[in-house]
Design a protein around this nucleic acid. Sequence first.
DNA 1: TTGTATGCGTTATCAC
DNA 2: GTGATAACGCATACAA
Lengths: 336, 336
Amino acid sequence: MTTMLEVARRAGVSKATVSRVLSGNGYTSQETRDRVFQAIEESGYRPNLLARQLATKNTQTLGLVVTNTLYHGVYFSELLSHAARMTEDRGRQLILADGKHSAEEERQAIQYLLDLRCDGIIIYPRFLSVEEMDEIIEQHSQPIMVLNRKLRRHHRHCVYSDQQAAAAAVVDKLVEMGHTDIAFITGSADSPTGIERLAGYKQALVRHEIPLRDELIAHGKWTPACGAAGVSTLLGRGARFSALVASNDDMAIGAIKQLHQAGVSVPEQVSVVGFDDIALAPYVIPSLASVKMPVTEMIQETISRLITMVEEGEAGELPSFSGKLIRRDSLKRLLE
Amino acid sequence: MTTMLEVARRAGVSKATVSRVLSGNGYTSQETRDRVFQAIEESGYRPNLLARQLATKNTQTLGLVVTNTLYHGVYFSELLSHAARMTEDRGRQLILADGKHSAEEERQAIQYLLDLRCDGIIIYPRFLSVEEMDEIIEQHSQPIMVLNRKLRRHHRHCVYSDQQAAAAAVVDKLVEMGHTDIAFITGSADSPTGIERLAGYKQALVRHEIPLRDELIAHGKWTPACGAAGVSTLLGRGARFSALVASNDDMAIGAIKQLHQAGVSVPEQVSVVGFDDIALAPYVIPSLASVKMPVTEMIQETISRLITMVEEGEAGELPSFSGKLIRRDSLKRLLE
DNA sequence: TTGTATGCGTTATCAC
DNA sequence: GTGATAACGCATACAA
């Protein structure tokens, strides 16, 4: 690989000069600029980003940690595509690290990005506790943003929705539509998001004085197959319901399939609701739409805040955006 | 950030010694090892990967370039999750670069990964021509693998399926099942894959002496919305068909939705076929399954070959794997 | 077994 | 305007 020194020799100047014309910092005459570019052309020179990053102590990259279990399913590609686009719009590069499927591996992924000296890091935790997240933020100088968790101490470092309220709102709407037999398929039992959504379902039932019936609750683990299995379980119990709330889009998709196979028409006989909506919408599954923060806005707020921290060294107090419950227009639209 | 020098001082040794105990290269006494680890603990030292990569001229990373248009949809998350897992299984890290939506941006993404000195690069081209891919491979010392394209010169550097044959095989099966009115929704007109799949459809019709009817062909651009629009177009024309081939899974999903909305039952009245299958299967869309190489195998072969090149410096002639037409068991299974 | 010295390819701070 | 030269943090050949 040809280096800067090689270019300097060809152009008959010093490394320093080549560096100047390339970075645009410092004065250089038009003539030497031409000669340098000429030399670059001829030699096929390409800057070594590693060396540059080491010298400048600045990588122009943001790291993202996501659990492997999210890689499958419709939510992830939305998350990633927005994150990548927005990061690059801000002149930086997104680096993805796999959080795999355990707390330890999630830690390793974070550590890797830190060791790579990313300017900032975004974490979508799945196994790490909010306590540990708070600690990690304190222990490192790089700015860190946490998605989908409400941190105890670092409020400015997290963006999340009130999952319980969102789930309750969905049930509210169903009740409003006249449903009383509302089934529910849970997410993973060890997932905070899953737990909160289930709590919201129960909370809303209580609010509407609808008795909670265990036979209407099936347990899943976020995948389409679980959604299908959940429906089988419900039907197998002889449970009767006119609405079904699945804890995410993937399970809703699986559930609808299974309902179809069982000869139940959707949404005529059973209304099915997912939670993520953005990804689901194009798939035309009859969703009630999400009441929680859409991925797009969530990522946008996160990256925007992270980059502010990176550039201003964490100075300045930002207003808290998290916890805001956003009702999307699509909710109304789809309910008509 | 505390560096190696700091650790060396604390442990009362030289930087070189610290480096040795960390890398495991060279001899070190148990005692100094203990002291060094002790010092590392105390100081919270973390290695700077950038410096290490610069010094060793080895990054232990593989780069992947994918167009932004693929980010949406079910195929991408499959592709990425397998790529990430397999890369890490081989002890390396995958770095994703966004190819966005033009040839120029695809070039830039490749260039970025090269400048980052990735050990090897995988490209899933969308806008770059095979000619240019061949040139890029020749111009760079890093090993490069190309997905889903048949290169003219560097046969060992690409893994692909015969898309035309795959499409034809799908039609063959439909004909075998008794269908003669087979509609088709194309992919993007500027996409090689899309063109080849359409060609396969036409080829099979000719082979079975079924007249080609333009009214049975709708044009799409890979998205679910296009699949739905395609169905609308077909129905709007008053076209009658008992089978519909969509050029990818996303469009098949959209098409099925639209058929449902139009009161057409699937698959009773119309059989719908997608192409990617792996992602589609859990969603329970009645697919005929893919005849082309599944993502999993494609990625596996690619990474395996790439790492071989990286480690052996491109030495050794590998047998050609590309172009192999893999019939999946699911094809039979689903057709029963 | 350990230390010294040099290199990796840049950037940045000086003089000139 | 330009050229030495010292960082940046780590690895490694060689000497000890």
